[in-house]
Every structure is written in structure tokens, then in C-alpha cells.
Design a protein around this nucleic acid. Structure first.
Lengths: 165, 165
DNA sequence: CTTGGAATGTCAACAAGGCTGACTTATTCT
DNA sequence: AGAATAAGTCAGCCTTGTTGACATTCCAAG
């Protein structure tokens, strides 16, 4: 079968190869979310709560609007999740000082504890996968993922890191 | 900051690196599903229909039970999706010959047309990402994804290819 | 100082797509 | 004959997404 292809650059772009990549994404994403999902299932929370906790932990003091942009859901959808997290004392919402219309979101101690628990589980799998694949594979992994994002998402993905001081 | 790390093997396993990998997965998966989602939104179908069509296209004549195993959902959930696809004439369900309890699923011409349309959109993005990242990155990408799967999922992932004759 | 618009929050209603549990119908295997 | 398997169905529940309408608060421009 190899002689049918003129070179690697052609070979790796066959529909079959692309299809395998698609399926790999599908199955891997299942693994990616499996561990946090298991933890969340034992509480009254879901994946949406995890996402909110993650990005609040990542950018403490972020506004609701900013979070809305990152998560890409409607404010009604986010609000439902956020409300339960605030009611349950995992997230604190403080009115902005310069612009008092804004609400700045931070994790409480309890919220940070849950976030760490979820994050630890997810990172453990990521770490194992990185270890198994090796540093060069990780670089390639990240390159392909980044190339797969919508340009707007890629911008957000980078913006999060740039906001880290 | 580089001098704080003793080497690459330590560097790429920092929590920060892992966190970036997690976010890359999150944002990339959004891109991954965006194009088919747009097509599906214009019809009365969702992502679940896409998944069913994909794996029926991949393994024509597969049984309901087999599909259930690959997708990892309950039969009630799959049945809802499958029923509409059969009613709409996109999927054909035929009684098995050797075991008449089984139903073998195949795409009709109409179903194959839709599947190709969805698949083309998803592959186009995949192809662009692969091209942008290069062959070596793709190898790494696939290695990390595979390492991220649950062992059972990895088995299924491979089983699909092995069933290709 | 008024007013337009932005940021936020909230209510209601709906849909997709997961889930559990209970049960039926065929069919096959032991 | 009876147990096990494959498939399908009904009913009800949950999470998480959607629209649309609307209230509140506040900044900033006129």
C-alpha cells in the first residue's frame, strides 16, 4: 500500500488518516472529561460547573461578561450555573469598584478546594498521557490542537495566558 | 524562568503546562464540532445523530449493540436518535440472518449523503490543522490522544480499524 | 442633568440528549 | 423447558443549552 503514495505529506492527509484523527478526538475527549465527571456526578454539579470553576480559578476577579465570552454560552445558561455556585458558597461575586455594574468572580476557600480536586483528577490523566507520549509528542499535540481552534477561540486561549502576570 | 527548571522532562509536566493542555483540549474540541454542528442546526438533528451516522458509515452492517458499546450511551438514548434516522430514511435496519435477534444498520443513499457532508466539513478542518502543524506534530497529536483514552475506549478505537478489511 | 446604552440579572418556556427503571417481544442457547 | 440475549418501548427525571422579554443599575456623552 505504501507504494501507492508518493510521500508522507500525501499519506498523512488521506481521508482514512483524517477519519482516525476524528475518532481519536472523540474517544480522547471522553477520557479527558471522565474523571471530573465522576466526581461531579456524586454532587449536584455537572460539567458546566466545572468549566466555570476552572476559568474563575484561572483568572480570579474575572467579570461575568468575560467568562461568558470564554465559555461561549448564553448569560442565562451561565447564570443558572453561577447562581448555584454562589448560593453554595463556592464562588464569591463582588461588585466592581471602578465600574460598579460589573461583578468580579472569585473562588471561596471551599470553591478552590473543589476546583483543585477536579483539576487534580484531570491533570493526573493529562500528566500520564504526556509522560507516555513524550515531550516531542506533546509539542505536536499542542500544535495540532491550536490549529484546530476557531481563530476567535485561539485568541481567547492565548489571552488567558497573557493575563497571567 | 527557564533556569528554575532542571530540564525539559520536568518543565513540560508543570501544572501550568498541564493546565494549558486542558484548555487547549477544551477550545479545540469546540472547533472540532463547530462545522458539523452548524450544518446539523439547520436540520432537526444534533451531535448525537452525527455520531450515529459516523459510526454506521464506518462499520456498515454494525449491530445496535455494537454501536451502543462504541458510543457509550444507553440504548434508550441511542434508540431515540436511531428511530428518527430510520423514520427519515437515512438509516436502514435489517434483521440479521444468522442471528435474527440482531438488527444490522446501514446508511441509505440519503444517509450517506448527509454523512459525507458532515464528514467533509469536519475533515476539512482536520486537514487544515494537520497541514498547519506538519506530519511530525500529527504523530505526536495522535500519540497523546491515544494515551488519554480509557483503556476500554482505546480498545474500541483500535477495534474499528481492525474491522476494516 | 438627562438620556442612551452597556452590564447584569431574572423569569418563563422549550429542546436535545443524557440517565434510570420497568417491561415486552423475539430469538437463541443451554 | 427455561435462561439469556438483542432489541425496542414507555415514563419520568436531570443538566445544559436555547429564545424572548424585561428590570435594574450605572457610566458616559450630549
Amino acid at each position: 500500500m505504501a507504494e501507492a503514495q508518493s510521500g508522507e505529506s500525501l499519506l498523512f492527509l488521506t481521508d482514512e488518516q483524517l477519519r482516525q484523527g476524528i475518532e481519536a478526538m472523540f474517544f480522547a475527549y471522553r477520557g479527558f472529561t471522565a474523571d471530573p465527571d465522576r466526581i461531579l456526578a456524586s454532587m449536584a454539579y455537572g460539567r458546566a460547573h466545572h468549566r466555570a470553576l476552572h476559568f474563575i480559578a484561572r483568572s480570579p476577579g474575572t467579570t461575568v461578561n468575560n467568562l461568558l465570552n470564554i465559555l461561549g454560552v448564553t448569560k442565562q445558561s451561565l447564570n443558572r450555573v453561577l447562581r448555584t455556585l454562589i448560593e453554595d458558597g463556592l464562588v464569591q461575586s463582588r461588585q466592581g469598584t471602578t465600574d460598579r455594574r460589573e461583578r468580579h468572580l472569585t473562588l471561596t476557600d471551599e470553591g478552590a478546594t473543589l476546583e483543585r480536586k477536579l483539576s487534580d483528577a484531570q491533570r493526573a490523566r493529562m500528566r500520564a498521557a504526556y509522560r507516555a507520549a513524550g515531550p516531542e509528542a506533546v509539542t505536536g499535540f499542542r500544535q495540532v490542537l491550536e490549529a484546530m481552534m476557531d481563530p476567535e477561540m485561539r485568541r481567547k486561549y492565548h489571552a488567558i495566558r497573557e493575563s497571567d502576570t
